[in-house]
Amino acid sequence: NLAEVVERVLTFLPAKALLRVACVCRLWRECVRRVLRTHR
């Protein structure tokens, strides 16, 4: 699944970079939201 791969990669990025990549597309924005939720 593409979303799972994107989420896996996003887990390695710092928070500032996550906010930046959330603007790329809807899929990435949803993935960033899930990554941020799991880090809390």
Rank of each mutant, 00 (worst) to 15 (best):
L2N: 00
L2E: 00
L2T: 06
L2P: 01
L2C: 04
L2K: 03
A3I: 14
A3H: 04
A3T: 13
A3D: 04
A3E: 10
A3V: 10
A3N: 09
A3P: 02
E4L: 09
E4H: 11
E4S: 14
E4N: 07
V5D: 00
V5W: 02
V5M: 11
V5G: 02
V5A: 07
V5L: 11
V5N: 00
V5R: 05
V5E: 01
V5P: 01
V6K: 04
V6S: 02
V6F: 07
V6G: 02
V6Y: 06
V6L: 11
V6I: 14
E7S: 08
E7G: 09
E7C: 11
R8D: 00
R8P: 00
R8C: 02
R8H: 03
R8E: 01
R8M: 07
R8I: 01
V9H: 01
V9L: 12
V9N: 00
V9D: 00
V9S: 01
L10N: 02
L10G: 05
L10R: 08
L10V: 07
L10C: 08
L10K: 11
L10Y: 04
L10A: 08
L10M: 12
L10I: 12
T11Q: 11
T11A: 15
T11H: 11
T11M: 13
T11C: 10
T11I: 02
T11K: 13
T11G: 14
T11E: 09
T11Y: 04
F12R: 11
F12Q: 15
F12P: 03
F12L: 10
F12W: 12
F12D: 05
L13H: 06
L13F: 11
L13G: 06
L13N: 05
L13W: 09
L13V: 10
L13Y: 09
P14H: 15
P14Y: 12
P14N: 15
A15E: 07
A15S: 10
A15G: 09
A15F: 06
A15N: 03
K16F: 07
K16W: 13
K16N: 04
K16S: 07
K16T: 06
A17H: 04
A17K: 14
A17I: 14
A17P: 03
A17S: 09
A17R: 12
A17T: 09
L18A: 10
L18T: 10
L18F: 09
L18D: 01
L18M: 15
L19F: 05
L19E: 14
L19W: 05
L19Q: 15
L19N: 09
L19S: 11
L19G: 14
L19A: 15
L19H: 13
L19T: 12
R20Y: 05
R20M: 12
R20I: 12
R20N: 11
R20Q: 06
R20E: 02
R20A: 14
R20F: 13
V21F: 10
V21K: 12
V21Q: 03
V21R: 10
V21I: 11
V21A: 06
V21T: 06
V21N: 08
V21G: 08
V21W: 12
A22G: 08
A22W: 02
A22R: 08
A22T: 04
A22S: 05
A22E: 07
A22H: 03
C23W: 14
C23S: 11
C23D: 12
C23P: 02
C23N: 11
V24H: 02
V24S: 04
V24L: 09
V24N: 08
V24A: 05
V24W: 11
V24Q: 03
V24M: 07
C25T: 14
C25N: 10
C25H: 10
C25V: 10
C25S: 10
C25R: 14
C25D: 04
C25A: 15
R26V: 00
R26M: 00
R26I: 00
R26S: 02
L27Y: 10
L27D: 05
L27A: 13
W28P: 01
W28S: 03
W28A: 14
W28Q: 00
W28G: 08
R29L: 02
R29Y: 05
E30K: 14
E30P: 01
E30I: 08
E30H: 09
E30T: 09
E30M: 12
C31S: 09
C31Y: 11
C31V: 11
C31W: 11
C31F: 15
V32H: 00
V32D: 00
V32G: 02
V32T: 05
V32Y: 05
V32R: 04
V32P: 00
R33N: 06
R33C: 04
R33L: 04
R33Q: 05
R33S: 06
R33D: 05
R33E: 05
R34V: 05
R34G: 03
R34S: 05
R34A: 04
R34C: 04
R34I: 04
V35M: 10
V35K: 06
V35H: 04
V35T: 04
V35F: 09
V35L: 12
V35C: 08
V35S: 02
V35I: 10
L36I: 06
L36G: 05
L36Q: 08
L36A: 08
L36D: 01
R37L: 04
R37N: 07
R37T: 07
T38H: 07
T38S: 10
T38E: 05
T38A: 12
T38K: 13
T38F: 14
T38R: 13
T38I: 09
T38P: 08
T38D: 08
T38G: 12
T38Y: 10
H39I: 15
H39C: 15
H39R: 13
H39E: 10
H39T: 15
H39W: 15
R40E: 11
R40W: 09
R40V: 09
R40Q: 08
R40C: 13
